[in-house]
Design a protein around this nucleic acid. Structure first.
Length: 646
RNA sequence: GCCAAUGUGGCUCAGGGGUAGAGCAAUUCACUCGUAAUGAAUAGGCCGUGAGUUCGAUUCUCACCAUUGGCUCCA
C-alpha cells in the first residue's frame, strides 16, 4: 500500500501501482473527467503515471496553469499528427505550449495557407474522435537517433544529438504519430474538446536568423467551446484597443509613405499629449535633483568608436558619409550616453560632485530593420526621457533605488504600474560579438545589481543575453494588446564606459577613480508610452492627459457666444477646450464628442445661459445635470491637478 | 533582414481584362433643434509606385514602396 497525501491534506491509501487517473476516479467521476494531469511530489506527470511510493498528489484540471500547458501541448501534437497526415513531406521541428496556446514548427516545400489551416483543423477533429491513447516510451540516445533518422526527421535528430551521450530520451506515441518529447501529455487525444488554429508565421530554426526559416502554426485550445469562443471574442475586443488603429482614428498620429517606415507624424492631439508628458517628467526629475542637458543629435564617428557603438551597434545607426571616402563621417545618435559623458568631462570632478544626475528629453535614431517597425511601439526616431547618473560605489544602491522609485512613481501616475513585470537582463558570455568587457567585470556588475534587486525585493525574471552591450539592465516590461512584451523602462549599471571615456573623479585620498554610471529612463520613450496609454485606456484618457478635456456644445447658434466666454475662462485656467458650434442637433454633437472620448461635454442651452450654469456630461458617467460654471471649473481643475486616473 | 497576408476617394469596405461603386466623413441648402446619427443635393479616385503580358490592365506577371501579424533584433 502507498500513502497519498492530497492537496487538502487528507491521506488516502492505495495499492502500489495505482494510476493517478484511478485515484481521481476514486474521488469522483467529475474530477476524473476534468483531470488533465497531476503533480506528484511537485512534479507534473500524466494521468497514466503509477504511484509506487508514498507521495503528495495534486490532480490538475485545465484551470491550473500546469494543466493548461499539458492540455495544449497534447493539442500541438495532435496538430503535428494532422499535418503529417495531410503533408507527409513536412519535417517536424518543435511544438511547445505557450501563454494562451501552442505552436508547432514545420519545414516544408509549400506554404501553409488559410485553407490548409482549415483542413488541418478538420483532420485534428478526426484525431480527437479517434481517441488515440498517448503512450510514453524511452530509448537510449543512439537508438533514438536511429529511430528519428529512419522516420526522416532531421530536426529531431539534431535535437537529440545535442544531448549528452548517456541520455535516455522519452517519446510519445499516439496512433501512427510519434514525437520526441519530455511530456507529460493527456492520456488520449479524445480529451481535447476545443481548439482553433490562429495563424501561420515564419520562425527561424532554433531562434537564430542564421538558420533556415520554418513555418510555425499557432493555435490555442480550451477545455470547452464556450471558453474558446470567449477567448477568441476577447482577442477581437483587445484588438479594438490597438494603438495603431485607435491612435490614427483619434488623430493622435499618422504615417506617410513619403516620409518612410518607422517615422510617425504626431498630429496636434498626439503632440499635445507628449508635451504634457514631457513637462510632467522634466518637472518631476528637476524636483529629484536631475539637471537637464541638451546635447547634439549627431556626432563624428570618432565618438562612437570610443564608446564602442561603432563596433557593436553600427548596424543600428544612421551613418552619414563613408569612412576613407569622406573627410568627415557622422552618425545620428542611437543613444545619449556618450553625449552626456562629454558634459561630465567638461571639467575635473571631485567626489564632492557626485552623484551627478543628468537628464535629457532625448531624440534618438535607430536604423531598425524593415520588418521590425510597429506603430508607435517600434520606430526609427523616438524621444526618450533619458538620464545618466555618475556616482561613487557607496552611492550606487541608493541611487539605483531612487531611479527605480522615480520609474514606479511615473508608472503609478499613468496607471500602468499594475500591468508591468520586471526582467533582470544579463549578458550571454557566449556572445562575444555583442558584449564588451570581461567575465570579471560582468560578474561584478551583475552581482551588484542582483544584490540591489534582492534588497529591494524586486521579483525579477532573468533574461540571459538581454543586457546592453556595456552592462546589465533592470527592464520594466509591459505587454501590448496582442500580448507581445516590450521594454517600457530600463535602469542599467555600467562600469565600462567611464573607463573608455576617461571619466574620473578625484577621491578623498587624492587618487583618480572611475565613477559608476547608471543609465536610466524614467517614463521610457514617449512614443511607446503613448502607445501603451492608448491601449490601456482604449483612448479614453484621464482628464490630465486628454488632448481635449472639455468640449462645449451649444444647442443652437444663440448660445455660441456664451460658449466662447466659458471656453476662454477654462483656457485661462490652462484647460484644453473645443467648441462644437456647427449647426447640428445636440444628440449628434454628443455622439461625436463621445466617440472622440473627450472627458467632459458641456451642453449649453437657454436655461444654462440664463442661470450661468453648464449641463455637464461625463464621458464615463453620462449626464451629471446642470451646475454653476465655477463649480464645474474647480471640479475639473482638482481632477487635473491631482492627475486622477480613475 | 526573413516568413506570410494586405494595399480601391479622408475613413470602413464591395467589385473585377473593356478606364469604378456603397456607407460614413466633407461641401451646399433647408431645419434652430435639450444628452450617442435631421433631410436633400453636390463634389471627390490615373484602384500604392514602376515595368511586363495584352488591341486594351485597376484586375494577370514581376520588381519596388508601405501597412499588418510572426521570427530575429530592440526603448
Amino acid at each position: 500500500m502507498v500513502k497519498v497525501t492530497l492537496k487538502d491534506g487528507s491521506v488516502l491509501e492505495f495499492d502500489a501501482g495505482t494510476t493517478v487517473l484511478q485515484v481521481a476516479e476514486s474521488i469522483s467521476q467529475g474530477l476524473a473527467r476534468a483531470a488533465v494531469a497531476a503533480e506528484v511530489n511537485g512534479e507534473v506527470v500524466s494521468l497514466t503515471t503509477t504511484l509506487d511510493t508514498d507521495c503528495s498528489l495534486n490532480i490538475l484540471t485545465f484551470d491550473a496553469d500546469a494543466g493548461k500547458k499539458v492540455y495544449r501541448h497534447t493539442t500541438s501534437h495532435i496538430m503535428a499528427q494532422a499535418v503529417k497526415r495531410l503533408f507527409p513531406d513536412a519535417k517536424l521541428a518543435i511544438g511547445p505550449a505557450i501563454d494562451n496556446g501552442f505552436y508547432y514548427e514545420f519545414d516544408m516545400e509549400g506554404t501553409f495557407t488559410q485553407d490548409s489551416l482549415t483542413k488541418i483543423e478538420q483532420e485534428m477533429k478526426k484525431i480527437v474522435e479517434e481517441k488515440l491513447p498517448v503512450e510514453r516510451f524511452e530509448l537510449p540516445r543512439a537508438e533514438a537517433i536511429r529511430f528519428m533518422e529512419e522516420k526522416g526527421e532531421p530536426y529531431k535528430v539534431e535535437l537529440i544529438q545535442d544531448l549528452p551521450e548517456d541520455a535516455t530520451l522519452s517519446f510519445y506515441r499516439q496512433g501512427e504519430f510519434v514525437d520526441l518529447c519530455a511530456g507529460p501529455h493527456l492520456p488520449n487525444t479524445g480529451k481535447v474538446k476545443a481548439f482553433k488554429l490562429t495563424q501561420v508565421a515564419g520562425a527561424y530554426w532554433r531562434g537564430s536568423e542564421k538558420n533556415k526559416m520554418l513555418q510555425r502554426i499557432y493555435g490555442t485550445a480550451f477545455s470547452d467551446k464556450k471558453e474558446l469562443n470567449a477567448y477568441l471574442l476577447q482577442q477581437e475586443e483587445a484588438k479594438k484597443r490597438d494603438h495603431n488603429k485607435l491612435g490614427r482614428e483619434l488623430e493622435l498620429f499618422t504615417t506617410s509613405d513619403l516620409i518612410g517606415q518607422g517615422l510617425p507624424i504626431l498630429l496636434p492631439k498626439g503632440a499635445k499629449m507628449i508635451q504634457i508628458l514631457q513637462r510632467f517628467v522634466e518637472d518631476e526629475e528637476a524636483k529629484r535633483g536631475w539637471q537637464l542637458t541638451k546635447t547634439p543629435y549627431m556626432a563624428k564617428s570618432d565618438l562612437y568608436k570610443v564608446s564602442g557603438h561603432w563596433d557593436h551597434y553600427q548596424d543600428g545607426m544612421f551613418v552619414m558619409g563613408e569612412e576613407g571616402k569622406d573627410d568627415e563621417v557622422f552618425a545620428l545618435r542611437p543613444m545619449t550616453c556618450p553625449f552626456q559623458y562629454q558634459a561630465y568631462l567638461n571639467r575635473g570632478r571631485s567626489y564632492r560632485d557626485l552623484p551627478l544626475r543628468y537628464n535629457e528629453t532625448s531624440t534618438l535614431f535607430r536604423n531598425e530593420s524593415s520588418g521590425e517597425m510597429h506603430g508607435l511601439i517600434r520606430v526609427r526616431q523616438f524621444t526618450i526621457s533619458e538620464g545618466h547618473l555618475m556616482c561613487l560605489p557607496e552611492q550606487l544602491e541608493d541611487e539605483f533605488r531612487s531611479c527605480l522609485e522615480l520609474a514606479i512613481y511615473m508608472l503609478k501616475t499613468l496607471g500602468l504600474y499594475e500591468d508591468v513585470s520586471y526582467r533582470f537582463s544579463q549578458w550571454d558570455p557566449a556572445d562575444k560579438e555583442k558584449y564588451i568587457g570581461t567575465q570579471e567585470q560582468w560578474d561584478e556588475a551583475q552581482g551588484i545589481m542582483q544584490k540591489i534587486l534582492d534588497h529591494l525585493e524586486i521579483p525579477d525574471k532573468v533574461g540571459v543575453g538581454e543586457a546592453a552591450f556595456y552592462g546589465p539592465k533592470l527592464d520594466i516590461q509591459i505587454k501590448n494588446v496582442f500580448g507581445k512584451e516590450d521594454t517600457l523602462i530600463t535602469i542599467q549599471i555600467d562600469q565600462m564606459l567611464a573607463e573608455k571615456f576617461g571619466m574620473v573623479y578625484v577621491d578623498r585620498d587624492g587618487t583618480k577613480k572611475h565613477p559608476y554610471i547608471i543609465h536610466r529612463t524614467s517614463i521610457g520613450c514617449y512614443e511607446r508610452t503613448l502607445a501603451l496609454l492608448i491601449e490601456k485606456y482604449a483612448g479614453a484618457f484621464p482628464a490630465w492627459l486628454a488632448p481635449v478635456q472639455v468640449k462645449l456644445l451649444p444647442i443652437i447658434d444663440k448660445q455660441v457666444d456664451y460658449a466662447y466666454d466659458l471656453a476662454h475662462k477654462l483656457e485661462a485656467m490652462g484647460m484644453r477646450v473645443e467648441i462644437d458650434s456647427r449647426n447640428e442637433k445636440i444628440g449628434y454633437k454628443i455622439r461625436e464628442a463621445q466617440l472622440e472620448k473627450v472627458p467632459y461635454m458641456l451642453v449649453i442651452g437657454d436655461r444654462e445661459m440664463e442661470e450661468g450654469k453648464v449641463a455637464v456630461r461625463s464621458r464615463g458617467k453620462g449626464d451629471l445635470g446642470a451646475m454653476p460654471f465655477e463649480e464645474f471649473a474647480s471640479m475639473l481643475k482638482e481632477e487635473v491637478d491631482n492627475k486622477v486616473i480613475g
